[in-house]
């Protein structure tokens, strides 16, 4: 009975149009499903068995990607309800909590974000400890470091959006540092040197509180509504796009560099 149904399904025109071959239970079809599916073809068709062991990769890279997908999904849902304007932002978040029965989208989004930060660090740790950044994988490690930075920036820009005390002050503390950027922060070393003293304006510094690095970051001299909008756009559009693009490159390189690292014959060589 069961085999009849599954045969009926896999022989149907609809199945064949989507999957293009029978159910992947033969060698041929197991190769084909990976090759003909755009998502699965991130994988090679076959991998060495040690790379499947949980104790080897800790699954951390894959989980980071999974959490990124969770963030994208829940993030889009949150965008339906949230307006990045000082007047509305806080109340929109409040409404999510008070008017949505059993609503956990905000929770999912927040906790998955925290979890993603942790999994990125641990993924990096395992890549390091298995020496997987050594040739030919040096460049992919570099892509990874940029991904790490983007992950932290995603978390950081998102932290402001609830527009509560926790948010505004965490971002204030975090972005205060930019004031001290060498040369381009108004309290940074060297910023006073950038005073060309043109047109008899020796007393007017070139870099001051309303044009320095922090000002550019925040869109104002302190964390305000302009910052909210700026961080919202970065958080919902720019950084996710950049991260997704780099992830594609990252996965591509994992394959091009010969898949997950495996012991080479170098291990026995003397130093």
């Amino acid at each position: 009975m069961w085999s009849n149904i599954s045969k009926y399904v896999t022989d149907s025109q609809v199945w064949k149009s989507i999957i293009r071959h029978g159910y992947p239970d033969t060698r041929r079809n197991r190769v084909l499903i990976i090759l003909s599916n755009v998502f699965l073809h991130l994988h090679p068709t076959k991998v060495p068995s040690h790379s499947l062991k949980l104790s080897y990769t800790w699954c951390m890279g894959g989980l980071t990607f999974f959490l990124f997908l969770v963030e994208t999904l829940t993030g889009v849902l949150l965008m339906f309800y949230y307006r990045p304007v000082g007047e509305y932002a806080y109340n929109d978040i409040l409404a999510l909590r008070e008017h949505v029965p059993l609503g956990i989208m905000r929770e999912l989004h927040r906790w998955a974000a925290h979890a993603m930060v942790i999994t990125v660090w641990l993924h990096m740790l395992r890549v390091f400890l298995t020496g997987s950044y050594k040739p030919p994988r040096e460049f992919n490690w570099g892509i990874g470091v940029v991904l790490l930075t983007l992950t932290l920036l995603l978390s950081f820009t998102g932290y402001l959006l609830p527009w509560d005390q926790l948010a505004i002050w965490a971002i204030t503390v975090g972005s205060n540092m930019a004031r001290a950027t060498p040369f381009v922060g108004h309290e940074g070393p060297g910023s006073k040197l950038l005073n060309p003293g043109l047109f008899g304006m020796e007393d007017v510094p070139l870099i001051h509180a309303t044009d320095d690095a922090r000002f550019v970051l925040l869109g104002g001299p302190f964390v305000g509504e302009a910052t909210l909008l700026r961080f919202y756009v970065l958080h919902c559009v720019f950084i996710p796009l950049a991260a997704a693009t780099l992830m594609a490159a990252h996965f591509w390189r994992v394959r091009k560099d010969g898949g997950i690292s495996a012991p080479t014959d170098e291990f026995s060589k003397p130093l």
Binding site: P24, R27, R30, V31, I33, I34, L40, H43, P44, T45, K46, V47, P48, S49, H50, L52, Y56, A262, P263, F267
Partner: peptide, 13 residues
């Protein structure tokens, strides 16, 4: 090392 031992290639699917 253990990772080298008994390594065979297996199907992703």
């Amino acid at each position: 090392p253990v990772e080298k031992e008994g390594n065979e290639t297996i199907f992703v699917w």
